[in-house]
Nucleic acid binder design. Structure first.
Lengths: 206, 206, 206, 206
DNA sequence: AATGAATGAGTTTTCATTCAT
DNA sequence: AATGAATGAAAACTCATTCAT
């Protein structure tokens, strides 16, 4: 007879366990959505028993909420400020590029989660909106306004409503979520090129 | 004891019943997503027994698929051609306006469904993409190219990739799906205004 | 548009309809057993609607009962009398041969049905037993006794309990019901040969 | 109002629970057949919730399969070898006796299950046939052949095809499955007596 | 902290049967 | 007689959650 693998009962700190759970949960939730992701699989992926998972979180919703909270901290990285430099135009260019670059599969999955499951955590979303997204917008807008005031950028409808600049990026993300990979990728590249050209055009305009 | 209500059996045509089911299903699916929407509730909302629902549809997936198929026929109304007229600029303006106008709650819900559940019906989505969306894009692009050739529109990066024009609209839709109604509405109006101004600017540019 | 096939509403006599139903039911019941055979399929096979089926039979059990009643009339053909002739031994030989020959797939299926579902119709089975099987046994035994009295057959334990002679046939049937076709067929042939040889041996014995 | 019974949760080992389930399932399956036996009733009989039953078995089929597998291990006890002794004839007599003795209600039920539901587990049946039944036959036949070679038994058609000897036993079993208890019992006794006498006769034959 | 065992409340689906025409 | 539409009751199975250790 073979020895039974002798499943050890590992004892780890709460911190570690929570993180294991959240990591596993992120994978499962982004892959399947809230409902289809099961506690069983999350526990299995996190390497612990279901019951132990409930020692660390009160229920499935709490895991989800904690997860989104973590993920939403950096405001999707999206509306970060462009680094100021000698040439504002160049910086802006690099900034937009950065956004398209950042469109990783993981980020796309989280976007999907945010769209399809945000109704589960309205309070969290509201706080995220009020404390992260809107302030970031404002800060960014202030910076842009400063550039305009300084004459580093000329005033255009875009500089008046700078968050508008993310629209094409989002369009590319949504394409990834709906269309076939090939079409989505084509659309992303076309969008990116058009985006860049239009921005340049706009900044050069008299 | 109360008298038993003596529930009368209602007898309707298959056509009517199917439509009742689809209507109820659309409500439930858009409100909760595929998994969370239950056959029980759909049947209740449609005013019939669960069993009768299964007389008209083979299973939950078939309901979902039929629903999406119906909804996707008009290509979301989105990439419809701008009506040609005396002033192309004016027509374009009206066209964009139309897109923002069309952003009804129902349409927004369907968009959500499309994003969160399209993986369930990949074949349907592929056909929709290949037979509806892409052809519509092409036709629209051809029309724009004609305008440019005719000198009615001047050539810009946007006229080279005209579907790009939908990006801000989509941005507004996604805001509705994520943010609070107030913020979403504000964002929609700002986006719409910026969109219009930028288009005008672009068309006027030398 | 194509013309709809114009499903005719055929009107037939009760007799005909009942027989159509019974024929279809026999096929379905023997193929699947009582529970797995569905009214839907029986009705479809009989070429009528489910509702019409209920015009002719009160319920599923009644169909089953009627069916078995019909089938059990000839007492499975099993304990039929051996035709008397010049040589009783020869006749007996032919009789046994006949039993093995009669082991058609249909007969085997009915045997299976009889074993697995007879508990559903205990009363019917009792009547069949009392009014068909046992009388047939008795008649046959009487005939054998007569042969013995006449000296046409010599007295043996077998002639004292003649129904015993069916045991090997039944064994072959059960093999068909359990084992793989190849093994069952081999077993049937071996059994048949042994059966014949033993009978001959017995009749020749001093 | 009565106090709520406060059903205590009983906690037992997997081993025990599995056995409880198998016991209950055997009862239900043999009484009603596979389809008509419900998981609800099996769980109730086993004294646990349906859900717990699914903790121990993946589905209804797995229960059935496990059950048959367990039961088929000893090859139905049927074709076991006769113990060799001073008098082979005596041993054979005892062996046959043993078979009739062993015809317990439980064994009869399993026989019914085997006949009516074996199509559900063709692979299991094939393995049982190839690895248990046929080898047992062969071993037994070899033993008989040895007796014949030793002169302990004289060669007859029966010694050439020894498994034939089970046919009358099987006949008695089938009678139990179809006829009323009284008739079945009468038939069993008659069959047993005839069986014994014929065997003796055969062995004594010149 | 950790877990194997246990369960209530739900899910989708099926089917014999009945109703209205 | 015939049928399309309708349904109650039950089936198998799932899953988030809890209990006992």
């Amino acid at each position: 007879m073979m020895d039974v693998p002798a499943k050890k009962r590992v004892r780890l700190s709460t911190e570690v366990r929570r993180q294991q759970i959240l990591d596993a949960a992120l994978t499962e939730f982004t892959a399947l959505g809230f409902n289809a992701a099961s506690i069983s699989k999350i526990a299995a992926r996190a390497g612990m028993s279901k019951a132990n998972l409930y020692v660390h979180f009160a229920n499935k919703d709490e895991i989800f909420e904690t997860l989104l909270k973590d993920v939403l901290q950096p405001a999707l990285g999206a509306w970060q400020l462009p680094p100021a430099g000698a040439s504002v135009e160049h910086a802006l260019d690099a900034y937009i590029d950065h956004q398209y670059e950042q469109m990783t599969p993981q980020m796309v999955s989280i976007m999907k989660l945010l769209i399809s499951e945000s109704h589960r955590v309205p309070e969290l979303i509201r706080r995220w909106q009020d404390e992260t997204v809107l302030p970031a917008h404002r800060e960014q807008q202030a910076r842009i306004d400063q550039y305009v005031a300084d004459g580093a950028l000329q005033k255009t409808p875009l500089t008046d409503n700078f968050s508008f600049i993310m629209a094409p990026v989002l369009y590319a993300v949504i394409c990834k979520l709906i269309f076939t990979p090939e079409v989505a990728e084509t659309e992303r590249q076309k969008t990116r090129a058009t985006h860049r050209q239009l921005i340049r055009l706009l900044l050069k305009a008299p």
